[in-house]
Computed example of a mutant assay.
Amino acid sequence: MATSIISSEPSRNRAPSGPLWSPRAIVLALAVAIFAIPTMIFVIRVGWSGEEGAHGPIVLSTGLWLLWQQWRSSRSVVQPPSWPFVWIALAVLVPLTVFARITEIVEIEGYLMYASLIVVMYSLTGLAAIKRMWFPLVYLAFIFPPPDTIVYAVTIPMKMWLSKAAIGALAIMDYPIAGEGVRIYIGQYELLVAAACSGINSIISLSAISLFYIYMRHQAEWRYALLLVLLIVPVALAANFVRVIILILLTYHYGEAAAQGFLHNFAGILLFAVALVGIFLLDAILHPIFERLRTRRARGFYE
């Protein structure tokens, strides 16, 4: 009996064998990693330099940490991949990534490169491990800026709504304000609600950070987590509505230079922090109610 215990100990600590450590998989992983470095440099230089990508470093660091945590619990299900699928997928993704890099379409290039990395990860771990690590893999996709076509399609109705809401709110307070489309006229000033003020940047950044918070805190309660996710958009829109109101008032009372300088960026940062705190407060308020309702439902089921 003692001999069997001693002989079984090394197998408990031994790393999984098979596709994870095969020479072919290691060479493939190194090749794609080298291929991905220029894309990441491009994303950092272009996508993270503005307000729309300010959350990128936070998502990258927290996402890699979460991926490592999930990987530690997924090593037991490592299995051989389907190598024909790996080669076919890379044969499609790699040329498309090269084309996107040549044309300098950073949004498409980032997503194509990331898809290639997921294919390589699948070649190292198999499908079962990928399924266990689904959330960090989805979460890490937020490091790439969304395509401009999607941004334009989403921001146009948001800018229209914010313009009308701001004009209506200030008109009630007897400000000399009017508007046409996304243009706002107040006093002698003309303002344009840009994409940065439409809420799309706040929605993307707030969604990324809030998803991490919701997953870490409520991953076992998927219905409640879904409720918090659905609240991200209205919270971001409310915060940007306040931001537009502040910028209009700054322009009217202190001039265009005051509203477009430091205070413009500071208002965006401040309102993003307020929106994030708003998600935390909503969680603190709604979670006890959700737990109370679930307890009552459980009691009614067993009675």
Results as ranks from 00 to 15, higher is better:
2 A>H: 12
2 A>L: 15
4 S>I: 03
6 I>W: 06
7 S>T: 15
7 S>D: 14
10 P>N: 14
12 R>M: 10
13 N>D: 12
14 R>W: 05
14 R>D: 10
14 R>F: 00
16 P>C: 08
17 S>G: 14
17 S>T: 14
18 G>T: 01
20 L>S: 07
20 L>W: 06
21 W>M: 00
23 P>I: 00
24 R>G: 12
28 L>P: 01
28 L>A: 04
28 L>E: 04
30 L>P: 02
30 L>C: 12
32 V>P: 07
32 V>D: 07
32 V>R: 08
32 V>H: 06
33 A>S: 07
38 P>T: 09
39 T>Y: 00
42 F>A: 15
45 R>K: 14
46 V>G: 03
46 V>E: 14
46 V>Q: 13
46 V>N: 13
47 G>P: 11
49 S>W: 09
51 E>W: 02
51 E>S: 06
52 E>L: 01
52 E>I: 01
53 G>T: 01
53 G>H: 02
62 T>F: 11
62 T>Y: 05
62 T>E: 01
63 G>D: 09
65 W>Y: 11
67 L>W: 13
67 L>D: 06
68 W>F: 11
68 W>S: 13
69 Q>V: 13
69 Q>R: 15
73 S>T: 07
75 R>M: 08
75 R>E: 10
77 V>F: 01
78 V>S: 04
80 P>C: 11
82 S>H: 09
84 P>S: 08
84 P>M: 06
86 V>H: 05
89 A>Q: 08
89 A>M: 12
91 A>V: 05
97 T>G: 02
97 T>W: 03
98 V>I: 15
99 F>Q: 06
100 A>Q: 10
101 R>Y: 10
101 R>F: 08
104 E>R: 08
106 V>A: 13
106 V>P: 00
108 I>W: 14
109 E>H: 02
109 E>M: 11
110 G>P: 04
111 Y>C: 00
113 M>A: 09
114 Y>D: 08
114 Y>A: 11
116 S>F: 07
116 S>V: 03
117 L>T: 10
117 L>Q: 14
119 V>A: 10
121 M>L: 15
121 M>N: 15
123 S>V: 03
123 S>E: 09
124 L>P: 00
125 T>R: 02
127 L>E: 07
128 A>N: 14
128 A>I: 04
129 A>T: 06
129 A>G: 05
132 R>G: 15
132 R>P: 01
132 R>D: 11
134 W>N: 08
136 P>Y: 03
137 L>F: 04
138 V>C: 15
139 Y>R: 09
